[in-house]
Design a protein around this nucleic acid. Structure first.
Lengths: 136, 136
DNA sequence: TTATTACCCTATCGATTTAATAGAGTAAGC
DNA sequence: GCTTACTCTATTAAATCGATAGGGTAATAA
């Protein structure tokens, strides 16, 4: 299940990508336009800024803006920042690998085998999509 | 994230599929072999039986067994029973569709557009795998 | 310099889900 | 008729999620 955090983050990023210039957009404007709790959105934009996807400007006329061009922001990056691991189990994760404490042998584990395929196919989708592809 | 319930369920089904005959296997044997809490496994096998994937036999020499051949059990069925919706958001789910209460227009929703692709690629994996494919 | 604006941070909260456990009940077989 | 093993209900602790509240701080315009 996709978390609201990711859902809202994607919507906010898409909204920023759809702006004409790269002038700062206020949180309140994004929240209103996308039907998102403003306070919740604040924390999401904050993490996006800390990860280097967004820049912010304080004071009058301030707000958030994209640092890079939408076409240079792959969905793999966005999803990992917002949702975390792309894999459904840690033992097939590229960036968040962890061994299962049960399961003595990964190579012969049926769950491992299946989830590896799911991870690969999902990854391909995210690799083939940039933020630019999400803008209507 | 894959739930333990699904993980254990898949392992149990694979274990049953790997049996030579279709004679009942005790819960305790499955639990021991796959490192699963027996009581937790009980409830999982129960739902699998209620869904028609497994049969059970009581009394001495009883246990659980597969009703159909492993090659006739597609992963789509198993995953929907154990994990629920395959889609990451209800608005792109085939079997569990629900409209988003935010989001005025699905067609122009960036999240919808992306998650539709993910659902399709994941679905393809599950459609191409039966229980027989998971047996080592 | 001063007032305003808007970002930034911490803490809290209720609701929900998850994973596991306990204990009693019931049906089948020897 | 007694054992075995499945069946069901209830409870629990822990974790996570989504949201809210409230104040602090820095940058900008005037």
């Amino acid at each position: 299940m996709l978390s609201k955090k990711t859902k809202y983050g994607l919507k906010a990023l898409t909204f920023l990508a759809a702006q004409k210039g790269r002038t700062p957009v206020q949180i309140s404007e994004i929240a209103k336009h996308e039907n998102i709790s403003q306070k919740f959105l604040e924390s999401i934009l904050l993490t996006l800024r800390k990860t280097g996807l967004l820049g912010s400007k304080k004071g009058k006329g301030g707000g958030y803006y994209l640092i890079k061009e939408p076409k240079d922001i792959p969905m793999t990056t966005v999803m990992r920042v917002l949702e975390g691991p792309i894999a459904m189990v840690p033992c097939v994760s590229l960036n968040f690998y962890e061994k299962c404490e049960d399961c003595p042998d990964e190579a012969s584990c049926s769950v491992h085998k299946l989830m590896l395929q799911v991870r690969d196919s999902t990854l391909e989708v995210f690799r083939n999509n940039t933020l630019a592809d999400l803008v209507p």
